[in-house]
Design a protein around this nucleic acid. Structure first.
Lengths: 140, 140
DNA sequence: TATTGTTATACTCTATAACTATA
DNA sequence: TATAGTTATAGAGTATAACAATA
């Protein structure tokens, strides 16, 4: 299936380049891409355990511990031990975290939104549908 | 344009997650994503200068120097001073580099190709067209 | 014993600033 | 002086291995 392999190669390169481009768009003193991504999951799906967050973010537990330590130090999330199973650490976003998430997402996304604005509505719809597909692929 | 902002956020998260997932698929002793990406450009568009490669890869010159030093150390590319302008360094892929590129791409892509194989031909076509769009966005 | 999370450590990726060589 | 590339250095992101606490 050479046709599928070619698509795989192109998709990999495109994702890599877009991520690189987005990483450059970090506003002064803003949250990093990784922090923003984790905080968005905590906001949308929290409270959740550190382990669940690691699975959701497709990284290993030590990587999540690191991100959480930073987010907590800035008061953006709260970590608390689960009373039912004291091995679990439950994470939830704070009001400060929600406000920060909203502000940083806007700043961070400004560049990409401007780019998307140059596309036709049909092209944006195409992208919207492919985002759903990519999420499905990355989940496996 | 809240609709465009939402798409921007979703696209950012999807690209980030897919890149992370692909990074995990690195075969033992295989080239990294960054090395592979650079080598593919050199193969497709070489010989080219180090500066052109940096622009093409959307990174700063020092980042490219680092990647090139590694690729050269493994005998995958050749660096030579341009006789016309001795400030320029021309990069080209070696036969060993071409062979290595092909082998590593196959190993690296195996996981993604398997995932893509579970999609319908229509869905793959959708992805193919969106890859072209993403490339256009990231180029700006 | 198995599971959850953390700490210690190391490697990859990228950038900014300072430098060298060439134009 | 300006440009191309490199070196030095630092910060972000991630992993594996070893550990502590809890089940």
């Amino acid at each position: 299936m050479p046709e599928v392999a070619a698509l795989a190669a192109d998709l990999r390169l495109a994702a890599h380049r877009l991520t690189r481009r987005l990483r450059q768009q970090r506003p002064q003193d803003g949250l990093t891409l990784t922090q923003l991504s984790a905080l968005a999951v905590i906001w949308r799906e929290g409270p959740l355990t550190a382990g669940d967050l690691a699975v959701r973010e497709q990284v290993k537990p030590p990587s999540i511990t690191r991100v959480l330590a930073l987010l907590q130090a800035e008061g953006l999330v709260k970590r608390s031990v689960d009373a039912d199973d004291r091995r679990h650490v439950l994470i939830q976003i704070t009001p400060v975290g929600s406000a920060r998430l909203e502000a940083d997402v806007q700043a961070r996304e400004a560049w990409l939104a401007r780019q998307l604005d140059t596309l036709t509505p049909q092209e944006r719809d195409l992208l919207r549908r492919s985002v759903a597909l990519i999420d499905r692929l990355a989940e496996q």
